[in-house]
Amino acid sequence: MMTALTPFYDKKVQCLACKHSYSTTKIRSRFVKVKGHESDFCPVYESDELNPLLYNVSVCPQCGFSHTDEFTTYIVPVLKTDLEQKISRHWQPQDYGRERSIDDAIKTYKLAAYCGLIKKEKKITIAGLYLRTAWLFRITNKEQQERRFINLATHEYIDSYLNDDFKGTAMSETKLLYLIAELLRRQEKVEEAVKYLSKVIEKQHLSTEPKIVEMAKERWREMRESFKDQKQNHLA
């Protein structure tokens, strides 16, 4: 008799820091149903439980080193010592390899961001961890925390853009500029947001992502409308 396929499976991982082998839960892609995306690319899934965002981070149960597939595999020896002092020495062995709640997932992202900072990962990688943390807080309606992590992500994304640190990653310049603008807009930093949106629109002829250029124009129109409304209300 064939056993029914479950949405979850175990993936074998080797810790980049201590080389311990462990298994962590992942979701089979065929069970993942995306309803759509929000304006900052946050995926909206049909099921809260079958949300791959919850399982993005691998946490070593032995030393606490946490990473995603975006991390580079090599750790400079001096930074390995740093990780040992700042993470492993304080680590109480615990297992995040099972099914995770949103709170569990948030802890794993915070751990991965901390590890990424110590390991000196790319700014674009750290920014992605902060943004996904913000999305998880959004699901649980914790607006203050969501805003805090959007702010952290914005700083890292801007740094990444200014230092060309995103080059050679899956993030294109068009998408990065749009994302910075959108995150600034969500923090009511309208003037700064407009500055980044206009960069997307100025460079549209160089872009191979017409959909993102279109999204930038949409945001631009929305912001112009709300600016007009504010002006009229102010004059009324």
Rank of each mutant, 00 (worst) to 15 (best):
D48E: 14
E49K: 09
E49F: 08
L50P: 03
L50Q: 08
L50M: 11
P52D: 15
P52L: 14
Y55G: 04
V57K: 03
V59F: 02
C60M: 12
C60Q: 01
Q62N: 08
Q62A: 04
C63N: 11
C63F: 05
C63D: 15
G64H: 08
F65E: 01
S66T: 10
S66G: 06
T68N: 01
T68L: 09
T68F: 04
D69C: 02
E70A: 15
E70L: 13
F71C: 04
T72D: 12
T72F: 10
T72A: 08
T72P: 01
T72C: 02
Y74H: 14
I75R: 11
P77N: 14
V78N: 09
L79M: 08
K80F: 09
K80T: 06
D82F: 09
E84H: 13
E84Y: 15
Q85H: 14
Q85I: 11
Q85T: 11
Q85P: 00
I87C: 07
W91T: 10
Q92E: 12
P93K: 13
Q94A: 07
Q94V: 14
Q94P: 01
D95M: 01
D95T: 07
Y96C: 08
G97Y: 13
G97D: 07
G97W: 05
R98N: 13
R98C: 01
E99F: 00
R100F: 08
R100P: 01
R100G: 01
R100H: 05
S101E: 06
D104Y: 02
K107F: 03
K107Q: 14
T108F: 02
T108Q: 11
T108G: 11
K110E: 15
L111E: 10
L111Y: 06
A113T: 11
G116A: 14
I118G: 11
K119A: 14
K120L: 10
I124T: 15
I124E: 08
I126Q: 06
A127P: 07
Y130K: 08
Y130E: 04
L131V: 13
R132P: 02
R132T: 05
R132E: 12
T133V: 07
T133C: 11
W135M: 05
L136F: 00
T140A: 00
K142S: 06
Q145I: 00
E146A: 05
R147D: 03
F149M: 05
F149H: 06
F149I: 07
I150R: 06
I150G: 01
N151G: 03
N151E: 10
T154D: 03
H155S: 08
H155I: 12
I158Y: 08
D159Y: 07
S160F: 06
Y161T: 02
L162D: 11
L162C: 02
N163F: 00
D165L: 04
D165E: 12
F166Q: 06
F166L: 10
G168D: 07
A170M: 05
A170H: 03
M171V: 15
S172V: 03
E173R: 13
T174I: 13
L176D: 08
L176V: 03
